[in-house]
Simulated scan of single mutants.
Amino acid sequence: MLAAAAGVTVVALVTAGVAVVARRRPPAIGAVTMGPGGWVSLRGARVPALRPATPRPWWARLLRARRLVVQR
């Protein structure tokens, strides 16, 4: 009886270990290297998502304020 309980425990621990390893995510970025001139290069880095458009505050609507956007 004791051997069977130990066997079941070992199988459960191995199964849980395999599940944890299988769910591990790959690194967010690839290799970090030094580029020419001392710049840091991040290969495989994703471009950050744009911020969602937030509603204008009440005071901006009241004053009819506009965003400051630099025209190039």
Score class of each variant (00 low, 15 high):
1 M>L: 08
1 M>G: 11
1 M>Y: 03
1 M>T: 04
2 L>I: 09
2 L>E: 11
2 L>C: 01
2 L>K: 08
4 A>K: 03
5 A>L: 14
5 A>I: 08
5 A>P: 00
5 A>T: 06
6 A>R: 02
6 A>S: 08
7 G>H: 00
8 V>N: 04
9 T>P: 00
9 T>K: 01
10 V>C: 12
10 V>E: 03
11 V>R: 07
11 V>M: 13
11 V>T: 11
12 A>F: 04
13 L>P: 00
13 L>V: 13
13 L>Q: 07
15 T>Y: 03
16 A>W: 11
16 A>G: 08
16 A>T: 05
16 A>D: 05
16 A>C: 04
17 G>A: 09
21 V>I: 10
21 V>C: 00
23 R>A: 15
24 R>G: 11
25 R>K: 14
25 R>D: 15
25 R>N: 12
25 R>S: 15
25 R>T: 12
28 A>W: 03
28 A>V: 13
29 I>F: 11
31 A>F: 01
31 A>L: 11
32 V>W: 07
32 V>Q: 06
32 V>M: 13
32 V>F: 04
33 T>Q: 13
34 M>C: 02
35 G>L: 05
37 G>H: 07
37 G>V: 05
38 G>T: 03
38 G>M: 06
38 G>R: 07
38 G>I: 03
41 S>Y: 00
41 S>A: 10
42 L>I: 06
43 R>I: 07
44 G>A: 04
45 A>F: 08
45 A>P: 01
46 R>K: 15
46 R>P: 08
47 V>E: 13
48 P>S: 07
48 P>Y: 08
49 A>Y: 04
49 A>W: 06
50 L>H: 05
52 P>S: 10
52 P>V: 13
54 T>Y: 02
55 P>C: 00
55 P>S: 09
56 R>V: 14
56 R>M: 11
56 R>Q: 11
56 R>E: 14
56 R>D: 13
56 R>F: 04
57 P>R: 09
57 P>V: 08
57 P>G: 04
58 W>C: 00
58 W>F: 10
59 W>C: 00
60 A>E: 14
61 R>L: 12
62 L>C: 01
62 L>N: 00
62 L>V: 09
63 L>Y: 06
64 R>Q: 14
65 A>R: 13
65 A>V: 09
65 A>D: 09
67 R>H: 10
68 L>N: 10
69 V>S: 03
70 V>Y: 12
70 V>K: 10
70 V>F: 13
72 R>P: 14
72 R>W: 08
